[in-house]
Simulated scan of single mutants.
Amino acid sequence: MPLFTFPGVYAPQEDTRLLIAALRRECLPPAARVLDVGTGSGALALAASLHGAAEVTAVDVSLRAVLSARLNGLLARRPIRTVRGDLLGPVAGQRFDLVLANPPYLPAPPARYPPRGAARTHDAGEDGRIVLDRLCAGVPAVLSPSGVLLLVHSSLCRVDVTLELLARAGLPARVTDRVLTRLGPVTLARADWLADRGLIEPGQEKEELVVIRAQAP
């Protein structure tokens, strides 16, 4: 369905569609509670609601993203609870049967200040893992027993590290989906820097996106 996004809010792209495809394969338990971390437009939250989730919570640090997700929920007539806050902080003490996450994961050159505006939707430090590492460490605390995490990110920020961190946190994980996609305009604009760091090959035009599935005991 068409979605509205305020300026500076992450609009659904290939990684969003890949994660939605993985979501649709999940068999949700009765009265399932779903969390969408870093919701952006609310696309994943809406997909979870349409997939049969009884309760969907969408969190984002950006006020514009929260307003976009809230508006899209209203337009679609789906009961989406939207909360503004940093990552898992707003849902501390709550448990969910499914956590969806499409966090910022693009490696970025050192900046004088933390990313702001549209850059905050994709830039994630020099290794692309500023948000990913925090998410891997914190997600076990919000998963119900047998709860599932579905996480999408690029191979540019090391899939093996994500799998290892989730395993250390007690969440056995595996890659369920892979797709090659063209480098986006932001990535292409810093291609020389990425090549200098060995994250891509000179002249590389594609990157691999993966969905990682982890499940609580």
Rank of each mutant, 00 (worst) to 15 (best):
residue 93 G to Q: 10
residue 63 L to K: 13
residue 208 E to H: 10
residue 105 Y to Q: 07
residue 97 D to C: 05
residue 8 G to Y: 05
residue 67 L to Y: 00
residue 173 A to W: 06
residue 208 E to M: 15
residue 153 H to V: 04
residue 71 L to H: 10
residue 214 A to R: 08
residue 155 S to E: 14
residue 163 L to K: 07
residue 175 V to L: 10
residue 72 N to Q: 11
residue 9 V to R: 05
residue 115 P to H: 04
residue 207 E to K: 13
residue 74 L to C: 13
residue 64 R to H: 13
residue 166 L to D: 05
residue 65 A to E: 03
residue 90 P to D: 03
residue 120 R to G: 12
residue 9 V to M: 04
residue 97 D to V: 01
residue 93 G to T: 09
residue 39 T to C: 14
residue 181 T to N: 04
residue 165 L to P: 00
residue 202 P to Q: 07
residue 202 P to G: 06
residue 216 A to L: 13
residue 35 L to V: 00
residue 84 R to S: 01
residue 150 L to Y: 02
residue 216 A to W: 04
residue 174 R to Y: 10
residue 25 R to L: 13
residue 132 L to S: 06
residue 66 V to E: 00
residue 212 I to P: 01
residue 204 Q to C: 06
residue 156 L to W: 07
residue 113 Y to V: 11
residue 156 L to K: 07
residue 21 A to H: 11
residue 63 L to R: 15
residue 130 I to P: 01
residue 75 L to H: 03
residue 125 G to D: 13
residue 90 P to W: 09
residue 29 P to K: 06
residue 19 L to A: 03
residue 7 P to H: 12
residue 118 A to G: 01
residue 117 G to I: 04
residue 191 A to V: 07
residue 138 G to C: 01
residue 165 L to I: 02
residue 157 C to T: 11
residue 56 V to F: 04
residue 40 G to C: 00
residue 107 P to L: 11
residue 75 L to C: 08
residue 184 G to C: 08
residue 173 A to N: 10
residue 56 V to P: 04
residue 172 P to I: 02
residue 136 C to I: 06
residue 89 G to L: 13
residue 183 L to N: 05
residue 13 Q to W: 12
residue 8 G to S: 11
residue 124 A to P: 00
residue 108 A to L: 09
residue 128 G to V: 01
residue 21 A to E: 13
residue 196 D to C: 12
residue 185 P to A: 14
residue 165 L to V: 01
residue 145 P to C: 08
residue 134 R to L: 09
